[in-house]
């Protein structure tokens, strides 16, 4: 049985359709990433899965629990790391963890033991008694995660947990998530940082305009766009004759797998090394002066670009 099954999920706010019939499954122990630009509908999906919003239509099952009908039953097994730092700033890290632990029915020694373990995981044992308002953004984010894992949830849902923090804290958080996943916790991780999703998630769903436009492992997604690399050729603006260059490129790439924008030429190709020297020669022959050449292996960015025709951070 899958840990989470989402079927034809749809959510409208008035006339605006935020999520348009999304379906996916997440298996037990898996880490599933939801990748998409801001406003793509990721948080709305998460809010429905966690039982915060009722969907307009569709089904959500966590194992055999119908999340829409019995959200409180499902929420016992779900840990949620919201996008905001959902903590009481004037309270200490320990007090915050104690509060959220009690909201998940933990009490007494087991609660205190859990708090100690979590403080160790998030690396804040030494600062346990300090008020959250005195913490850096990264430390607050770590407590934010700590509050979600106190009750040892089976499914941990993280909604952009690394927004606005320093690289050191980000690394700590990514390592923590990796460790939790390796210990058997199922993870759903939403982000618009591709490198995080690539690093953490076994399977990835790409979301745009409220739709899940592709899903699969990184390899499957790369293959879905033909596993093409990208060659970026930067040229000196003064020596650029667009018309002449386009004509030559069309002769060399009759399938039109190139783009000419500003003073850069981008070419999609499965084996860039094979064509690189001929390509450079062709461009030089048009009288264009090349300033740099860069080959980018296929990644989530290129997958997203290929699927949506725009960059992830556009």
């Amino acid at each position: 049985m899958s840990m989470l099954t989402v079927q034809d999920l749809q959510k409208s706010f008035g006339k605006f359709e935020a999520v348009k019939g999304v379906s996916f499954t997440v298996e037990k122990g898996e880490s599933f990433g939801l990748l998409g630009p801001n406003g793509a509908g990721k948080s709305t999906m998460i809010n429905m899965i966690t039982g915060l919003y009722p969907p307009t239509s569709g089904e959500i099952h966590m194992k055999d629990i119908d999340v829409i009908k019995s959200p409180k039953q499902a929420q016992k097994w779900i840990g949620v790391v919201p996008q905001e730092i959902a903590l009481y700033q004037s309270m200490s890290a320990r007090e915050n963890l104690r509060f959220w632990g009690r909201m998940y029915d933990l009490s007494g020694n087991s609660l205190e033991k859990s708090i100690d373990q979590v403080l160790e995981i998030i690396g804040l044992t030494e600062r346990a008694k300090d008020k959250v308002e005195t913490f850096s953004g990264g430390m607050k984010r770590r407590v934010n995660i700590g509050a979600a894992i106190l009750h040892k949830p089976e499914l941990l849902i993280m909604d952009e947990p690394t927004v606005g923090i320093d690289p050191q804290s980000r690394n700590h958080i990514l390592e923590t998530v990796k460790r939790l996943n390796s210990e058997g916790m199922t993870i759903i991780y939403t982000s618009h940082y591709m490198e995080e999703v690539e690093y953490l998630c076994e399977r990835i769903g790409i979301v745009d305009y409220g739709q899940l436009i592709a899903s699969g492992t990184l390899r499957e997604l790369r293959e879905s766009i033909g596993d093409h690399s990208r060659i970026f050729l930067t040229i000196e603006k003064d020596h650029l004759s667009e018309e002449k260059l386009t004509k030559s490129l069309l002769g060399f790439f009759p399938e039109k797998n190139f783009e000419l924008q500003d003073h850069q030429v981008m070419v999609f190709h499965k084996e860039p090394q094979l064509i690189l020297s001929d390509f450079i020669q062709l461009v030089t022959q048009t009288g264009t002066k090349i300033t740099s050449v860069n080959i980018v292996e296929p990644n989530l960015e290129s997958v997203f670009l290929h699927l949506t025709g725009r960059k992830l951070r556009d």
């Binding site: 966690t50 039982g51 915060l52 409180k72 929420q75 016992k76 779900i78 949620v80 919201p82 996008q83 905001e84 730092i85 959902a86 903590l87 009481y88 700033q89 959220w100 909201m103 998940y104 029915d105 509050a147």
Partner: peptide, 14 residues
């Protein structure tokens, strides 16, 4: 605004 309200709503508290 701070998010604690929403977090409480997704906890098992009714």
């Amino acid at each position: 605004i701070g998010g604690t309200w929403g977090r409480m709503m997704v906890s098992p508290a009714s």
